[in-house]
């Protein structure tokens, strides 16, 4: 394998891990609550700001800052669900769509008011870059891959092996039936939103040392995550993981071997191709099939 191809594969896996992490949250929230939570991009941005404040302003260890970002964003998820989405749940579906955009704009405006429009840097806990079989990668990028895989595995165990996870699956299958058998659907909704928001917050915190922290940093991420979720099939969290890696690799390798000028268009080409062949997405569920 050529060094360039190997580097391209490594780049694609890192990108895919990041897309997958946010897309899983998006898919989980859509699968359980039916909410297209586009504001998760802004949640990722706020997660990055939390990490910035903790590490740079307060001098706290990066990993503790990441935990703080997850906790802060989980709390934000609870608030947003309780104050915005829950009161709108009985209205037409389009309301959720509009509300999600409203939350996105509001969170960006708050970030601008508090932090201004300038770019902030978060130092990586381990600086420098490594060469592994002629593949250059930074420790932070390796961390993104490892943490994303651990979180996805943890989420799988949580959903499949815990009582709350079973409740989440039940609500995703049939909310009315779940309520009939005594499951607190409201609490499940809050839990789901908190998990999705926390994952986005961690993603933002992970990416902060790789990029820069600024109010619009989540915009491109959420577009890519949305493409991943549609590729996978709305609501398919395991499909979102695979589709995240597929998109990351398509962008990385497509840019190298098809056209560097249209690297960002690869995502849309892939999306169109999949939707033409399989409109419900690669792993899309049919009606009332629950989480897949």
């Amino acid at each position: 394998m050529s060094a360039v191809l190997a580097q391209g594969l490594a780049n694609g896996i890192m990108l895919g891990s990041l897309y997958g992490l946010i897309a899983v949250g998006l898919a989980l929230i859509f699968g359980v609550l039916g909410i297209p939570q586009f504001a998760l991009g802004a949640h990722a941005m706020l997660g990055a700001y939390v990490v910035y404040v903790f590490t740079v302003s307060l001098g706290v260890n990066y990993w503790l800052a990441l935990v703080a970002a997850a906790a802060a964003l989980a709390l934000l998820g609870l608030l947003v669900h309780a104050l915005v989405f829950r009161p709108m749940s009985t209205g037409p579906g389009i309301n959720m769509f509009i509300a999600a955009f409203g939350v996105l704009l509001m969170l960006q405006s708050i970030a601008i008011l508090v932090f201004g429009t300038r770019y902030y840097r978060v130092p990586s806990p381990i600086e420098g870059s490594l060469s592994i079989f002629n593949i250059f990668v930074t420790p932070q990028r390796l961390m993104v891959i490892v943490v994303a895989l651990l979180l996805i595995a943890g989420l799988h165990l949580f959903i499949m092996r815990t009582r709350t996870g079973a409740f989440i699956r039940a609500v995703a299958d049939n909310p009315r039936g779940a309520a009939v058998v005594g499951i607190d659907v409201r609490k499940v909704g809050l839990t789901t939103m908190a998990i999705g928001s926390a994952l986005a917050g961690i993603a933002g915190g992970l990416i902060a040392p790789i990029g820069q922290v600024y109010p619009a940093m989540g915009d491109l991420l959420i577009i890519k995550a949305f493409i991943v979720v549609v590729l996978a099939g709305m609501g398919s969290i395991y499909g979102a993981i695979l589709a995240g890696y597929a998109l990351g690799l398509a962008e990385s390798l497509g840019g190298m071997y098809v056209s560097l000028a249209y690297q960002d268009a690869m995502a849309f080409v892939l999306l169109l191709a999949v939707l033409l062949v399989r409109p419900q997405g690669l792993f899309g569920r049919r009606a009332n099939e629950g989480l897949t």
């Binding site: 391209g8 890192m14 990029g211 619009a216 990385s252 840019g255 190298m256 560097l260 960002d264």
Partner: peptide, 15 residues
């Protein structure tokens, strides 16, 4: 070609 709001430019820079 790249988006200035992007975070990761390895895909463009590698080739």
């Amino acid at each position: 070609v790249y988006d200035q709001n992007g975070t990761d430019f390895y895909a463009q820079l590698t080739p």
